[in-house]
Every structure is written in structure tokens, then in C-alpha cells.
Design a protein around this nucleic acid. Structure first.
Lengths: 159, 159
DNA sequence: GACTTAAGTGATTATAATAAGCATCCTGTG
DNA sequence: CACAGGATGCTTATTATAATCACTTAAGTC
């Protein structure tokens, strides 16, 4: 929570009651709510917030690195995969491209006991995130621009 | 491809040129295209297909288990996660709920060399899919219904 | 503590992806 | 080769998310 305030200050983002409330809500819960759910919950304590502010604040928090999104970055469309062999994914956080890779070790991961209390696992796969060679190459040419505000770079959000 | 035809037969789904073409397209490519992309590609060889058929066919293939979707099942909204500690996810393929779990072993996975040729990895996390205890409990009570057509069970699609 | 100013907010209006309804057409079967 | 029901394509809804814009408010300054 203090972390949150500090990061906001440093980023020049104002501390508004809405943001406080929204962050509190996301941080408080262990499930992984969507914007609509957060909206409903926050509205209980603050009936005037708009859904819009929820969206803006959430993505702001993502941009600040304070929270993350599940999966391949919420705003993406569905993507399909005909590869039914056991395999894993590398996702580029810059361009969003996804490549398969293989690893016998990863295929045979031993599941921790804690999972027993959650459910019965049918399959696991590993998702590696990083920067693909293409994007790394481009970044090397185009100077990074130290102050790059880098707002909302589509495809940049992923867990 | 034969597998595809066999499964369709068994499921009582008709073999149409559109479906053949769409499956061929998805199976042929190593990237993980979205519906729109598949649409564009298929249209080159079959200019009359409708985007609609693409969607219907893709989800049909998913329902038949012939292909899968990336990430948390395309049709989901963005979901947010304030947990920045290294952690992993269990996703219930029935209800879509996602729970965090922890494993030192998973945090320290040794990446295969093949990844070097793809990009620089910044983080990895494991996604375990299965049926959560809640859903397993419900399924035990409600008899499974051997012929359950189980069409489009929202949240059922995930890799 | 009042003043200033840019950032934030909420209401409304777009957009983009995906789904539904329906008339026509085609696959698989007898 | 005729039939029946599923499949297609077209058009029209939905739904989630983003952009606009006028008004408010947080935060730094005197």
C-alpha cells in the first residue's frame, strides 16, 4: 500500500480516493477479478465511481507495474493452437507473438502438494515471458529514449 | 488431418470444405493466429467464407478437442492480479476460476537451450489446468449425463 | 490556507470482437 | 437420387473496452 503510494508519486500520478479504493480492492482479494467485478465491489464503498475510472485505473496500475494481468494480456483476441503435443510457450512482451518450445523437463514437472487442496490437475504448461529476438533487434536500433512514457503499448501486458 | 476427419465423423459433425480449409490453415501454421488472421488467410483460397463460419468452426474444433486456445480461453475479459511475488496459477477448466499456488521448484526452472534462439526470457510461470474441488464436487452430484452435448461451456476453453 | 494548473473524473459516445437469428444450401444417408 | 438436419452466410445484436469532453480536484507554491 505504501509501495503503491510511492510508485504513484514517482510516476507523477495523483493519489485520488478512487485509485486508493480500487487498488485496495485488487490487492485485498486472492481471486483474479475482472474490471466489472472490481467495479461492483468498489461501488459498495464508493457508489459514484464510474466503470470507466475502473478501467483507466487498472491499466494505469498495470503500466506502473503495481499489478499484472492474467493470461496473455486481457485485451487480446482469442488465439488458436493446433499443436496438441505437450509443449510450452514463449510470449514476447513487446510484440505479443507466441512461439512454442519443447522441454522434456517441463513436461514432467512434479506438482507441489498444495495443489491437492485446490483441484485435480490434468495438464501443466510453462509460459516464459520475455523479449523475442526480433523486438530486441529493433530496440537496439531505435534508441530507447530514456524518458519513454511508453503508455499502453498494446500487447505489452501479460503475466 | 485424418484424425480431424475421424473425430468429426464420430461427433456427428459434417465435413464441409470450409471446415477442411480452416483446420488446414490452423494446423499448417506454427504461430497462433486469431480468428481474423485465419479469416484473411483462408479467404485467399476460398473467397466466399464468412468470418462467422471461421468463429463457429474454430470453437467447434476446440469443443472437439482438436485444437486449443492460448491463454485463459479467448473470450474472457481481462483479469487482474496484485500478487507480484513469484507464483503460479491453477485454472479450473470448468468454472474458469484461477488460484495462485507456490513452488520453489517451479520458480527456479532451468530454461532449455532452444529458447536462446527465440528470445531473452525475463520470467516464467507455470499454468496448471484441471478441475477445482468445487466443480469436482458438483459433478459428482449431478450425474454426468453420458450424452452431455456440453456445448460452449463458457470458461471451458483454455490451454 | 488560498491560488494555480494539470491531471482525474464521470457521462456519453465510439469501436472492435464475438455471438445470435434466420433463410438458403449442402453433406451424409437410405 | 431424394431427404433431413446440420452448416453457411448475411444481417443484426451484445459485450468489453476505449476516446471525448466539460467539470472537478489533488498537489505544489506563495
Amino acid at each position: 500500500m505504501e509501495h503503491f503510494q510511492r510508485v504513484c508519486r514517482e510516476a507523477g500520478a495523483k493519489l485520488t480516493p478512487q485509485r486508493l479504493e480500487i487498488f485496495r480492492e485488487v490487492a485485498a482479494t486472492g481471486d483474479h477479478p475482472d474490471a466489472e467485478t472490481i467495479y461492483r465491489r468498489v461501488r459498495k464503498r464508493m457508489p459514484t465511481v464510474s466503470l470507466d475510472t475502473i478501467y483507466r485505473t487498472l491499466w494505469l496500475l498495470v503500466d506502473l507495474g503495481i499489478i499484472q494481468t492474467l493470461g496473455a494480456g486481457g485485451r487480446e483476441r482469442a488465439r488458436f493452437d493446433a499443436n496438441l503435443d505437450p509443449h510450452h510457450h514463449f510470449v514476447c512482451v513487446q510484440c505479443g507473438s507466441t512461439r512454442d518450445f519443447y522441454s522434456k523437463d517441463f513436461d514432467a514437472l512434479a506438482l507441489p502438494d498444495s495443489l491437492r487442496e485446490i483441484g485435480r490437475v490434468e495438464a501443466t504448461h510453462v509460459e516464459a515471458r520475455g523479449v523475442c529476438l526480433d523486438c530486441a533487434g529493433k530496440a537496439a536500433k531505435a534508441p530507447p529514449g530514456p524518458k519513454s512514457k511508453s503508455k499502453s503499448n498494446t500487447n505489452t501486458r501479460t503475466v
